[in-house]
Design a protein around this nucleic acid. Structure first.
Lengths: 201, 201
DNA sequence: TCTACTATACCGTCCAGTCGGTATAGTGAA
DNA sequence: TTCACTATACCGACTGGACGGTATAGTAGA
């Protein structure tokens, strides 16, 4: 085995580092061409490093996926804390950020979903853990757990459409500003009726 | 026999035919091991035929995907017509069938999503077309398009969780009978409030 | 000298697709 | 009834390329 500096890296090299460029290239390729397209050669070429250089930082393809997944977790934790103190409210922030806007987190989430589909259990686990984080915040914000769940599902649906499905067909779900606002209005009323009308079935 | 099969390939050589067995095996492997696991060898082995046998029926891996996608379209069209005349109503039927119950259509949808993730544009297209079919039926049923959209998104979310993500983590979204009933109640109220409060933005 | 690479070559495995062959059933003619 | 031939359905060895990973020699900067 070679002595790679990676393992469970304590140090954070500055942003534009080769390591970061490799991670971004991996992410890009995952999004654009799926897991099949994200070969070591392709990632290295995209990142502008040699294959050897890539493997210097991440000892294996699995290590590369691990490094990427760690980055996702970090990004998600930051996002959740931003969401908690969003000026327009948690629900507004949450729904709005459920459509792919090309943020770093969006990209990482999409890439992770690709990985999860190819039966990388770590990707599924992290994705599920992030969802749990979200659910907690939304329950806290809207009170009613059924409404919170519906909101999370709408978010999932939005995400699924705009991020996962969106590249093959035009506009599977309306994701315009106006469409989103209407949806947010409805969703916010949803948490109201949940309280106002406890039995209706 | 004749050189041209009738209108839309409707020659149905009884259910357990080799062709069908191959399609089912392909689907199974797509679901269980993702696109990577669904190799020609694996599919052939699963279907109990040789690779040559498989390739006799479907000229290439692409042809296999095509055959499978065609089957999905057929299943979806049947399902939509069943939904239109569901005794408990379109919304109830739609939400309930949004969680993976292991029906033929469920399995085909999951498998197709796997394919779509691996950038097979045909899979994305068909999935989007099916979603459009659903949206039309739900709009027709609930009247309000925003509510219909929310319902479709909840369905997408449910589907995404139970079918696509569900294998990595325990219970990402509560999909129990009770949980589903609560959600349906809420969703049906959702179409009511949409009418009751037209301006809120 | 150490770190952080580049460049190139190579190995073993996996995988899609090819190809020659086999088995069986049917068909028309002598 | 037998012969010649065709069509359909399938088998499995093999080929060629892609890919993950290893190895090694060399280089520029701190």
């Amino acid at each position: 085995m070679s002595s790679a500096p990676d393992v469970s890296d304590q140090r954070m090299p500055h942003r534009g580092s080769t390591r970061d460029r490799i991670l971004v290239a991996y992410e890009d390729l995952l999004i654009e061409s799926g897991e099949r397209g994200a070969t070591l050669d392709a990632v290295a070429a995209r990142a502008g490093v040699s294959k050897g250089g890539l493997l210097y930082h991440f000892g294996s393809k699995d290590g590369l996926a691990g490094g990427f997944l760690k980055r996702l977790r970090d990004l998600a934790e930051v996002d959740v804390s931003v969401m908690r103190s969003a000026p327009a409210g948690v629900v507004d922030y949450f729904i709005r950020t459920s459509v792919n806007a090309g943020t770093e987190l969006d990209r990482a989430l999409i890439a992770a979903a690709r990985l999860a589909q190819t039966s990388d259990p770590r990707a599924s686990e992290i994705l599920a853990a992030i969802r749990t984080l979200w659910l907690d915040v939304v329950i806290e914000a809207v009170g009613d757990p059924v409404a919170a769940r519906a909101i999370l599902l709408i978010s999932d649906g939005l995400y699924y459409n705009s991020a996962l499905m969106g590249m093959g067909a035009p506009d599977p779900a309306d994701v315009s500003d106006e469409g989103l606002q209407k949806l947010i209005d409805m969703v916010e009323r949803l948490s109201t009726i949940a309280h106002g009308d406890p039995d209706a079935g």
